[in-house]
Structures are given as structure tokens and as C-alpha cells.
Amino acid sequence: MSGRAPGSLMEIYRSKFRSEIAVQFAYRGALAIWLLGLLLEPVIYLVVWTTVAASQGGAVGGFTAGEFAAYFAILMVVNQLTFTWHFHEMEWRIRQGFFSPLLLRPVHPVHNDIAENLTFKLLTFTAVVPAAIVLLVAFRASLQPSLVDVLAFIPALALAMVLRFLVEWTLALAAFWLTKVSAINQAYYVLMLFLSGQVAPLALLPPIVQTLASLLPFRWMVAFPVETLQGRLSPSEILTGIGAQIVWIMLAWGLLQVGWRAGVKRYSAVGA
């Protein structure tokens, strides 16, 4: 975005990786506590749904107990890889005046956040994957993806990461206009909870909610890769999904550009 050679951008990322790892290491206690929360949430819904499945004679809405286990274990990994924290970060930066130095660097601040994000993901991924495996084993998950499912999962996951980052970063720009974004943040979080398949697989929700989840970007940010790896989607459904992801990414990208320009304009009009 700053029109510099890709080589030097790579160098910025490398440096940022290194310093970010050091930062995260300084906060390893906080990191451990965060991981605990990340692990617990899918376990709660996993337990609820396996209990429901058991009481209904083994299966509910086309999910057996083992399939619920697989769903929530994969969901945990996808969540860990896609989630962002920019709602808080952006507000904090702008209020505390940490935004100005970022603005004065000859690099677009989004690169700073992408690098931070990737580093954090890389670090926590090493803890989340074993945790997912423990869940898969402990709750006797049934997961038999075909090769096609596994191959489709990779782009679906990568696009989900890009899409969720762009959407949340763009929404976080609201902090330029509002002094408190926590209400927006929470409303978005709740939509996310239901429409991206965190509370239950989308197939268990009322049809209208399912339609909404597919029309909005939510399904494509989290649920879609999980469904893909579970082998619940036909090849044409997978292709449609990837198409939807790409369309939403382009839309979100455009919104980010517009929102960013307007936000910075406002910031430099009112000061910090």
C-alpha cells in the first residue's frame, strides 16, 4: 500500500515477527490464561451437544456425538487461526495516543497488525493443535475426510483468515468516530457466535438463520472451513463457498480502503 518493493516489506515482516515473539514471551502467563479460555469454550458446546445427541438416541440433526466432537475440535483450530483483537486494540491506540507514531511510519499500519496477527497465530498454533488432538481422542470424534476435503480445507481456511481479518479490521475503524466501540463489538460478537457456527453447527439452526449466515460473511469466516474438512459439502458447494469468500474479501477490502481513508482524515481533523 505504500508502494515499496515487496522485498523490503518482507523484511519488515521478519523484524516484526522477531520482536513480536519477544513481546509474547514477556506475557507468557497471559498467553496461557488466554489459551485456557480458548480451549474451554468449544468444550462447553461440545459437551452440551454430545449430551443432546445421547438423549436423542445417538444423533441430532445429522450429527452423531462423534461428529459433534470433530466439529468443535476443528472449530477450535479454525477460530484460533482466524480470530483478531483489533476492536480493542484500535480503540486503545486511538485513545492513548499510540496511533500517531504508527501513522508516522512510512508503512501502512495494517502491515503492523498483519504481522502481529500471524506471529501470535504461529505461537499459539503449537498449543492449539495438541489441544485439538486431545479433544478428538477424549471425546471419540469421528472424522474421515476425503483427500478432496483436506485439499479444499486449506484454501477455505486461508481465505477465511483473510476475510475475518479484513472484516474485523474495517469494523474496528469505527473507533475513529465513536469513543466507545464496546457495544458494536459485542453486537458483532453475538452475531458471530450464532451465524458463524460457534454455538452449534449451522445445520441445527432455523432455516432463516442459515440463510442469513450464508448471505452475510459470517459462515465464510469460520463455519465453512470446518464443514469442508468434515466432508459435509459437495464439490459444487465447496466451490460456491470459495467463490463467496472471494467476493466478500473484495468487498471488505474496498470497505477497508474507504473506511481507512475517511478515518484518518477525521483523525487528522480532530487530533488526538
Binding site: 452440551v48 443432546v52 438423549s55 459485542q186 453486537a187 453475538v190 450464532f194
Partner: peptide
């Protein structure tokens, strides 16, 4: 807004679960 959303979320979760079953544990 936050309290209402929080409560609504919890109740919606219950509604979804009991859309599929009559009793939970």
C-alpha cells in the same frame, strides 16, 4: 445494550438446544 444482548444470547442458546431435545442431562 450489552446486558440485553448478553441475556438474549444465553436464552437463544437454550432455545437452539431445546429445538432439538426436550431435556438436557
Amino acid at each position: 445494550a450489552q446486558s440485553t444482548i448478553g441475556l438474549g444470547t444465553a436464552l437463544a442458546g437454550v432455545a437452539i438446544v431445546f429445538g432439538q431435545t426436550d431435556e438436557l442431562g
